[in-house]
């Protein structure tokens, strides 16, 4: 029996035509496409077969899964998410152990070359025993699954860039998916966790056009990672006026002044938090009063303290500078002594 159409699935779950068209329009706009593309989205989605998706969670905290599956409750986005044929996700699926593994292998065989592979978590390249699933180490499992995938979505900063498992001293020698798999299209949906609507939009675009969206230099969808948090932050006018909160509870912070001095990494972080926001569009961290920690950027955990302003340096300690003072003073005194000797010699001569 062939897989059901996405349109049939949505109708069976009570989604009205109006809601569906609203969803298609907002998804088109989120992807930076004109609203006139909405009917094309609708037509393509209605006729699309449920794509098989295999989701491999490796060294991760399940935050990405939580974000995608629970953050928005029962919205249309989550229904779209259900519309895919999630053939393997060991956190969500009912099957466990050998049954789950058989389901994965079956899906890989049946949909070879066509399924989407979602990976969250980084891949340990040290001892294979650091992270295993049903006795299989992560790297082997990834290589096997990637071989038959049409494309790979590296979900979350751990899968995209190594994330927290890859932070110094990186005891498991964790690497992102892109360092293992070189011969498949990989789309990085970074963030710790990533914004739910980003992945549903990527899925919708894939179902509609059969291809992945335009990516930035780090392999992220440009529509969502094309601008910095700072570019779209509602506190930006205060930055321009030089009005900065000095502490998290001062009058400036409460008045919405810029959090740059408190270590906000908005200027160097590319993500859609400031526009798409979280919790059904309620707010985002800066709106809640905390600076951006740059979680969608490579190496964000190792870029110094979260409360250290971006314009400051990395000192470690002052030993190097202290040594420089000593060296400079010694050179100066030695130069002067030599010059005085020459003076004396000249006067004596």
């Amino acid at each position: 029996m062939s897989a059901p159409l996405v349109g049939e699935l949505l109708r069976s779950r009570g989604v009205t035509r109006r809601d569906f068209m609203n969803f298609c329009t907002s998804t088109a706009l989120l992807l930076g496409l004109p609203a006139s593309m909405a009917p094309r989205f609708a037509a393509a989605l209605e006729q699309a077969r449920r794509p098989s998706v295999i989701w491999l969670p490796f060294q991760e905290c399940t935050g990405c899964t939580e974000s995608i599956t629970r953050a928005h409750g029962a919205t249309l986005e989550s229904l779209i998410f259900e519309a895919i044929s999630l053939d393997y996700q060991h956190t969500l699926q009912a099957a466990a152990g050998e049954a789950a593994e058989r389901a994965r292998e079956q899906a890989m065989r049946d949909n070879h070359g066509r399924y989407l592979l979602i990976v969250d978590g980084s891949v340990p390249t040290g001892n294979p025993g650091y992270s295993t699933i049903a006795g299989h180490d992560n790297r082997t499992m990834l290589e096997e699954a990637a071989a038959g995938a049409a494309a790979i979505i590296a979900l979350g900063t751990c899968a995209a860039f190594g994330g927290i498992p890859g932070a110094a001293p990186n005891p498991t020698r964790a690497v992102p998916v892109g360092e293992i798999v070189k011969d498949k299209p990989i789309i990085n949906v970074s963030g710790c966790p990533p914004i739910p609507v980003v992945i549903t939009s990527v899925l919708v675009q894939y179902l509609t056009f059969g291809k992945l969206p335009d990516l930035d230099a780090l392999g992220r969808p440009k529509a969502f990672y094309g601008q910095t948090i700072h570019d779209r932050c509602y506190r930006r006018p205060f930055y321009e006026r030089g009005q900065f909160a000095e502490s998290f509870d001062d009058a400036g912070a409460k008045a919405g002044w810029c959090l740059y001095k408190l270590g906000c990494r908005g200027p160097t972080t590319y993500n859609a938090c400031a526009t798409v926001k979280w919790n059904n569009g309620t707010s985002f961290p800066i709106e809640a009063g905390h600076g951006c920690i740059g979680c969608s950027e490579p190496g964000f955990w190792d870029k110094g303290g979260f409360y250290q302003p971006l314009s400051t340096g990395r000192w470690g300690d002052a030993r190097t500078v202290g040594t420089a003072v000593g060296v400079g003073a010694a050179l100066g005194i030695a130069s002067a002594a030599l010059a005085r000797k020459r003076q004396r010699d000249a006067e004596g001569g």
Binding site: T312, G313, R314, V321, V325, G332
Partner: peptide
Amino acid sequence: EFARGPALQWSISIFIAGVLWRLLGVFLL
């Protein structure tokens, strides 16, 4: 990271050492 870290430390160190060298070399004449 390079600019904020090692490059900054070394450039400030060279700056301090160089300025002290030049100033002491002149003022102690």
